[in-house]
Amino acid sequence: MRRREGEETVASRTITLNINGEERNVMVRNADTLLYTLRGKLGLSGSKPGCLNGDCGACTVNVDGWPMKSCLMLAVEAEGKKVMTIEGLRNAPIQQAFVKEFAFQCGYCTPGFIMNCHALLEQHPNADDKTIKEWLESNICRCTSYIEIEKAVKSVLRGHSGGS
């Protein structure tokens, strides 16, 4: 492809990111967000753009075990950190719980919600209602009533007897 001289090429550099347990080399501009890099450069399209300014949570990933809105983080800031995206989550109880409780419809908010819930369950395995609300109110689901998501989360809390 014909590429004219421009700042874009100049400001790009290669960094190494730890994504889902793998070291990945990727060429980024300083201004590229982690979300843009994951989707556009690494083919990890599970994290979704919904607003690009932190309002919706559709882009949520885990960084060193904490939920992070990947539209609010630059790719270069993720160097040296462990990034986990929805693609890195395999057969986690929360994923099964989402299926069982019908906790999604269109599914667009689901990767972000699941990554947020997953981190919540890791950090607060005994989370109470208030903590759950504090964590989950950062994501928007436009399809479900949230009751389904609440049920899914509660079904995998520690001490929960299983079954909904």
Binding site: S45, P49, Q96, V99, P111
Partner: peptide, 16 residues
């Protein structure tokens, strides 16, 4: 369902 909880479900903007 399985596609939607694993990030494999593809929407228009995911095709690049």
């Amino acid at each position: 369902a399985a596609d939607k909880v694993t990030g494999r479900a593809k929407y228009t903007n995911d095709f690049q």
